[in-house]
Nucleic acid binder design. Structure first.
Lengths: 122, 122
DNA sequence: CAGGATCCTATCCGATACTG
DNA sequence: CAGTATCGGATAGGATCCTG
C-alpha cells in the first residue's frame, strides 16, 4: 500500500476503471476519512477551536488521537494551527481553504446520513 | 463506543455542540468512511458490479475485506445485493437510493482532494 | 493549556485454505 | 463464481504519566 504507480485514471473508458488505490490523494482521503479526521474537520467548519474545545466537542476522542489526527491534517494542509505565545500557551485550530473545501462534502455526507436514518432506524 | 445515549443534537445553540459521537448515524458514517467502504461506494456509483469485478476495480482489496465491507454496507441499507440463482451463482451489487445519495458527497470529496493535490504535490 | 512518551489491548486486515 | 473460517502480524487507539 505504499507504491506510487499513479495511473492517470483519466482514461475513463473502461467499465470499472476507478482510481486504483495508488494515487497520492489516497493518503489524504485516508486521513480525512479516518476514524476521527472527519469529526475534527466537521467540528472546525463552523469556527476555529482550541485544543481542549475540540476534545470537548468530539466526545470519546482521546488527547492522543486528537493530537495525532490534527498533526496529520495539518501536514496535509487541511488544518491551520495558530500558536499564541502567551502563558499558558494558547493554540487554535482552524480550517485552511483546502480544509473548508473538503469539509463541505463531509458535512453533506453527514447530513444525508442523519437525514436518512430517523425514518428507517432499526 | 457502544452506548446508545442519543443526545438529540437538535439543540444547535452551543458554540461547539456538534454531534457527540453517540448518535446512530455514527456507525453508518464509520462504515461509509471505512478504509474500503468509500471505494466500494464510489465504484458502484457508475454501475452495478459483480463480486470479482469489484475486487478487480479496487486494487489491493482482499476478498475478505470486500465481503466484510459489503456485508456492513448492505446491512446499513447502502448497497443492494442481487443473487441470480444460476450456475455458477452470480451476485451483483449496486447502490440503493440511500447509497446513491451518500455516494454523491463522497465522489465530491474525492474530486476536491484530487483536484487540489496536483498543484501542490510533494 | 497543549501536548509528547509509553504501555498495552482491541481490531483491522492480509494470506491461506476450504465450501456451495 | 462467490464467498466463509482461521491464523497471525500490523496498526489503531485508549489510559496513564509527564513536560513546557
Amino acid at each position: 500500500m505504499s507504491e506510487g504507480a499513479q495511473l492517470t485514471h483519466t482514461e475513463s473508458a473502461k467499465r470499472y476503471d476507478v482510481f486504483h488505490t495508488d494515487c497520492p490523494a489516497r493518503d489524504v482521503v485516508d486521513h480525512v476519512t479516518s476514524r476521527w479526521g472527519i469529526w475534527v474537520l466537521i467540528s472546525l467548519r463552523s469556527n476555529d477551536l482550541r485544543f481542549y474545545e475540540l476534545r470537548d466537542s468530539i466526545h470519546g476522542m482521546s488527547e492522543k488521537m486528537l493530537s495525532q489526527t490534527l498533526r496529520a491534517l495539518v501536514k496535509d494542509g487541511l488544518v491551520r494551527r495558530e500558536v499564541e505565545p502567551t502563558t499558558p500557551p494558547q493554540v487554535t485550530y482552524g480550517l485552511t481553504e483546502f480544509g473548508q473545501s473538503v469539509g463541505e462534502p463531509l458535512r453533506d455526507l453527514f447530513d444525508r446520513i442523519t437525514q436518512w436514518l430517523p425514518p428507517r432506524d432499526t
